[in-house]
Structure formats: structure tokens, C-alpha cells
Amino acid sequence: MIPATFDYVRPDSLADAVSALSGGGEDAKVLAGGQSLMPMLRIRLASPTLLVDCSRLAELRGISDDGDAIVIGASTPHHDVMHDPLVMAHAPLIARTTAMVADPAIRHRGTFGGSLAHADPAGDLPTVSLVLGAQMVLAGPNGRRTVAASDFFVDYFTTALEPDEILVSVRIPKLGAGWGYDYQKFHRTAQAWAIVGVAAAVRRENGTIAEARVGLTNMAASPGRAATTESALAGAAANVDAIAAAAAHAADGTNPTSDLHAKADFRQHLARVLTGRAVRVAAGV
């Protein structure tokens, strides 16, 4: 199928991109890798009047070390992210999860920031960014602002980005020593979206779990944390029984959707099972 008509600009600078976007009004959209947008354009689920191509803006690409954090440019392709030495050293959960996103060809074009800004509830990377405490740097007509991941994901396909704002980069705090991690993606075929995903990061100290973060994919309109499980894990023994007891609460308070791919109660069941598995891997149990 062929998209409806639209205008296209490829600005040379972020400032030009922001002004093109704000000049384009409500129906202007940022084009990064386009791997989520293009199918929507083709089946005409989206009909923007203007696409602002930000894929080549140098300031949106690349990965850098910023002391206690790494900074991933929003337009950095998944393929680059998952093979980047800084990511592998300081945010290996991102590398591991990115390798599960879509397929190799899509990972060559699709971007880290694009996945976050698209905010599909079944997306894997929003959950991971939430668990890692990412900070999103946004640029708009009034300059830049930083939004925590916990405030960035607002609703189905909706983020804190204003229509005239562009996601510039994502700051990921480095996980220090002692942290383990895992992402469990549950899907029916290898190229299907997650029915449920669970991200876990666990810091062990002397045989106990000192700190645990558990993020849930596709259990709500936007990624969430399994708060009861996290607090049950804090200070718990790093063993199978303690983890199982905590994981049993992973779906507490969730109200996931029922759709073609799964009914709500199965999603909740999966959240508990996958949380147990992810935390066990992350805790090295």
C-alpha cells in the first residue's frame, strides 16, 4: 500500500528541525528510522501532513560517556546501540533487550529514541529505560528540558513530548558493581510483539538482594514498575523461594488489556511467571 501524500523536510540542524516541526502544526511528525511509522503510513492509520526527517542530525546520533551516565542519541540505530562498548559495559540490559527488538533489518534503520517516542505499550525499550531510571532530553521552541522516564510515558502511543518537541537524547545512569539484569520477552513468534515483557535489575550484597527494580511491558497503557514485588525483594534472601514469593505479587494492581493476543488474566499470570524468571537471572539464582 502507498501512504497518503505529505510534505517532507530534512533539516540540517536541530534548531531548524524544531522550527519546521512547530511550523507544521498538529499534523507534523518527526521521522527518525521510520520503522514504526512506515507501516502506519502505508495502511493509512496515520496521515501526517509533514514529516521532519531527523535521522541525519549529528547531534541526535551516537553514544557518549557522561561520567555517572551514558548518553544515547535518539537517532542512534538499534544495531549500533546493541554493539556499542559503552552500552555493553554500563547498560548491558539495553544491549540484551535491543537484540530482541523486531529483526536485524529493522534494527539497522529503527532508532533507540524512535522506539521510546513511539511509546507502543508492547515496546520493550520503554520498560527497560524506566527500570534503568533514564532521563529523556527534549528540545522544543523554548529550549531543552529533561523528563524522567517515569514521567515520559503517558498513555498508549503518548509521551510527554509536545507536538513541537523532539527527543534529542537519553541519559542512562550507569549501573555500578553488583548489579545483575535480565529481560524476559514473551511472544508467540520470534517477530511478534511482546504479549508481556519483564525487565529486572537486581543488586546483590552478601547473599541477599539489596535492591531490585522490576519493569513490566504491556501490562498497562505504558510501562510500569512492579512496586510490591520490588519492596518484597529488597533485603530478601537471594534464593528461589524468596524470589517466587515476591514474584507472586508482580501483577498486583495491574489492569492489563484483553485483546487478540491475550486475555488480561493470562497477562497477569505471565507477569508473575516472567518476573520470577527475570529476577532469578538478574540475581544469579
Partner: peptide, 14 residues
């Protein structure tokens, strides 16, 4: 690098 040419605008290949 591999890419799906149905998921890319011709202008993006410039």
C-alpha cells in the same frame, strides 16, 4: 546493511 525497502521512503535513501 540489510533494510526493508517497503519501510523506507525513497527520500530517506538519498
Amino acid at each position: 546493511r540489510s533494510a526493508k525497502s517497503c519501510s523506507l521512503l525513497a527520500v530517506q535513501a538519498d
